[in-house]
């Protein structure tokens, strides 16, 4: 079966300090070449800290950023950036901040109609019917359609954002921190809704988050990003319980958990590497307790049994808790 999404050597380099003519002052590699397949119907979780490249990846996938190298295939066909409408029908995006992703000067109906009109060229009657259908699916009342975005709570606004993404009838949704701006009780409602919609419409999700517990609760597989590269990819039920990469272990140990005593799992001064002055070899080397001379070469992401891939010269023992 063709995978829903196939990325080949996808990477992104940003130019800093652009000048009117001539080369930029500096270049920053936001995403190292990435090769990845997402089977149809899967939820792939992507975790990482700020600056790890997860938003860059997401924005490239929906065509908001141009990749520096590599290609994106959606359901077997390469993506063509020239036509945003063709893009929008195949892959959609749910934004982190539900309020700022809705134009404050448009009614919800105008916002919902945009994808139906511009991507599918539907008539007015067809649009109304489709909007009613989608609103029913995300548990929103039709009465909301003539209101403006500022009249909604964060949870309702995020439902509207999800409804807009569904209206495009794309089979793949990129969910970029869809619940991090919401209160926990509302967060759970939205996560359950996403799970229901996935079954109902046969969707494939890329779920980006910094919250390990949330990612684990919704994903089939999880990819851990560090400094622009995938360091570990594995089944969600295993990856944080029995991490293979030392960075995954650090993330799992740092998450505050009820019933675990406070302990800073690493030295207190450590920081992310400077992107303008990237380290050689493994990017995690300076923070890693297992680092050795071997780590001066960049480890490749390679299979490591039971569906796991890990980019580490000294992976942790899988039997270790």
């Amino acid at each position: 079966m063709t995978p829903a999404l196939r990325l080949t050597d996808l990477s992104k380099t940003f130019d800093l300090g652009k000048r009117l003519i001539g080369p930029p002052r500096a270049r920053v590699r936001a995403l190292q070449p990435l090769t990845l397949e997402v089977p149809s119907g899967e939820t792939l979780g992507i975790v990482g800290e700020s600056g790890c490249g997860k938003s860059t990846l997401a924005r490239m996938l929906v065509g908001l950023l141009e990749p520096s190298t590599g290609r994106i295939e959606i359901e077997g066909a390469p993506l063509d950036r020239a036509d945003p409408a063709a893009f929008g029908r195949r892959i959609q995006y749910v934004f982190q901040d539900p309020i700022s992703s809705l134009n404050p000067r448009k009614t919800i109906r105008q916002i919902m109609e945009a994808p139906l009109r511009h991507l599918h060229g539907m008539t007015r009657a067809a649009r109304a019917a489709r909007i009613a259908e989608i609103f029913a699916a995300v548990n929103l009342r039709d009465a909301f359609l003539d209101r403006y975005p500022h009249e909604f709570s964060g949870g309702q606004a995020q439902r509207i954002g999800i409804a807009r993404a569904l209206a495009a009838e794309a089979r793949i949704l990129i969910l970029d921190e869809p619940v991090s701006a919401l209160d926990v009780s509302v967060q759970a409602q939205v996560l359950n809704l996403l799970a229901d919609l996935k079954t109902q419409f046969g969707l494939t999700y890329l779920f980006i988050s910094h919250d390990l517990a949330v990612v684990e609760a919704v994903s089939d597989r999880v990819a851990v990003l560090y400094f622009g590269s995938v360091v570990e990819l594995g089944p969600a039920e295993r990856i944080f319980a029995r991490p293979r990469h030392p960075y995954t272990r650090l993330l799992a140990d740092s998450a505050p958990v009820v019933g675990r005593r406070l302990a800073a799992p690493e030295g207190r001064e450590t920081e992310l590497p400077d992107p303008l002055n990237p380290p050689t070899g493994c990017a995690f080397r300076a923070r890693c307790p297992r680092a050795s001379a071997l780590c001066a070469t960049v480890p490749a992401l390679r299979p490591d049994g039971d569906g796991t891939e890990v980019a580490c010269h000294h992976p942790l023992d899988p039997e270790q808790g």
Partner: peptide
């Protein structure tokens, strides 16, 4: 109920409790 809404790590894939 609020505590039940917070997914605890290590629980695997599941439906979460909500407060309507």
């Amino acid at each position: 109920r609020l505590m039940a809404c917070v997914p605890a790590p290590g629980g695997g894939r599941r439906r979460l409790a909500t407060i309507p």
